[in-house]
Write a protein that binds this DNA or RNA. Structure first.
Lengths: 206, 206
DNA sequence: AACCGTATTGCACCAAAGGGCAGTCTGATT
DNA sequence: AATCAGACTGCCCTTTGGTGCAATACGGTT
C-alpha cells in the first residue's frame, strides 16, 4: 500500500521563511515541497494531487494573488493559505473572496499555521472526492449519444415515456430503447439514482 | 402593488458616518435604516425581510463581529458588509470566514460601497428564494406521518415497492398506499420531482 | 461491397406502479 | 360509547416501464 500523502507546497521568495515553515510542517508530519517563485511552482508536477499551498503575497514575478487567480482559471482546486509580512486589509479581503482558506501574517503562530493547513487539507479532501465523483459522471455522460441525452433530459424532468415520444415525434418503443441505453451507460439502476446523478452534471463548478 | 423594497441597515456608533453613508445610499435609491448600537438593531423588526447590513466593527457594546456571530446563530441570512476605520488583517479575515460579503475601510470609495451593497443584495435575493423554497418543502414534509417518511426514504433511494414491503415487513399494497400519500402531501407528481424535492431537505444549512 | 453504430419501430410478455373500493385494527379524542 | 385518524391489507383493473426478438434505414468505415 503506497498511501497517498498530501503535499504542502510552500511558495515564498524568502529562503529563511521557506526553511522555517518547511521545518515546522515536516515536524508535524507533512510532506513538503518548496518553491521560490510562482513560476517555479507552476512547473511542478503534483499540481492536481491532494495537498494545499502556503503562499506569500509579495514576491518577485507573479504575486501570490496573481498565482491564485491563475490557478482558479485553470480549475485547480488546491486550497491556498496566504502567509505574508506586508499585507493590508483590501489584500486579505480580496484573497478571501477569491477562495483562500486563510490569510495569515508573519510572524505566524505555530498553531495558527498548523490548524490552517489542516483546514485546507480537509477542504481539499472534500473537494477532491466530489470532483472525482463528478468526473466519473461526466465520463459516463460523454458516452451518451445526442439522442440519448435528449431522452435523459426528459426522463429526469419526470416526463412519461408516452409524453417524451409525443414531444419528440417518435414511437414510445424507441423512447424505451434509448432510455434503457441511458440507464446502462450512466451506470444506474433506478430512476432515483439517475436523477441524483444528473444533479452532478449541472452545477456551476465545472 | 406594494413592491418589496430591500432595506439597508446601517449600524455605526459614529453619528456623522451614519448620516454620510445613509445619504449616499439613499441617493442611490435604497431604503435605509440607521442604528447606533448592535442592541438597537436587534430590536428592529424587519430582520428577516430582504436587505443587508452595513456594519461598523468597533462600537460601544457588542462589536460588529459579535453581532455577526449572534445573527449567524439564529440563522439570520442578512448579508453583512463591514465598514471600519480601525481594522486589521486578522479581523477582516475572521469576518470574511464568517461569511461577510465585504470588509471595507474608512474612508470608503462611493463606488466601492455601492457595489458591495449590490453584491450583498444579490446574494440575499438568492439566499432568500432558496430559503423560501426549502421552507415550503419542510412544511410539506412536516405533514407526513412517521410511517410515510420511512416509505419516502426508501422510495427516494430507488427501492421497489416490493423491496420496501419486504424490509418493512408489510404488504406491498400498504407501501403503495403510503407512497401515494407521500406524493400527494409533498405536492409532486413524479418520482423525479420527489427525488429533487428530497434533496432540499438534507443540506447542512438548516 | 461488407460491416458497424445509431436511430427507429412493431409485437408480445412480464414486472411494477397507481388507484378504486372495502374492510380490520388500534389508540386517542370527544 | 361514539368518533376519527393512521396503519394495514385484499382484490381487481389500468397504465407504465422494461425487455427480448426481429427488422428497416442511414451514414461512415474498412
Amino acid at each position: 500500500m503506497t498511501e497517498i500523502v498530501p503535499i504542502i507546497h510552500i511558495i515564498d521568495d524568502d529562503d529563511s521563511v521557506r526553511k522555517a515553515v518547511s521545518r515546522l510542517l515536516k515536524a508535524a508530519g507533512y510532506a513538503v515541497k518548496s518553491y521560490a517563485t510562482s513560476g517555479e511552482f507552476m512547473m511542478a508536477e503534483n499540481l492536481e494531487s491532494p495537498g494545499c499551498i502556503v503562499l506569500d503575497v509579495r514576491m518577485p514575478g507573479p504575486s501570490g494573488l496573481e498565482l491564485q487567480s491563475a490557478l482558479a482559471r485553470r480549475g485547480n482546486g488546491l486550497p491556498i493559505i496566504f502567509l505574508t509580512g506586508h499585507g493590508d486589509i483590501p489584500m486579505s479581503v480580496r484573497a478571501m473572496k477569491a477562495g483562500a482558506v486563510d490569510f495569515l501574517t508573519k510572524p505566524v503562530q505555530r498553531q495558527e499555521l498548523l490548524s490552517a493547513v489542516q483546514n485546507a487539507l480537509d477542504r481539499q479532501a472534500k473537494h477532491l472526492s466530489e470532483q472525482t465523483r463528478n468526473q466519473h459522471i461526466r465520463e459516463c455522460y460523454a458516452t451518451l449519444t445526442e439522442r440519448e441525452r435528449e431522452i435523459m433530459a426528459h426522463v429526469v424532468e419526470g416526463k412519461l415515456n408516452k409524453q417524451i415520444a409525443a414531444t419528440m415525434g417518435i414511437a414510445e418503443r424507441t423512447v424505451k430503447a434509448h432510455r434503457a441505453q441511458v440507464m446502462s451507460k450512466m451506470q444506474v439502476d433506478s430512476l432515483a439514482d439517475l436523477v441524483r446523478t444528473a444533479s452532478g452534471l449541472e452545477p456551476s463548478d465545472g
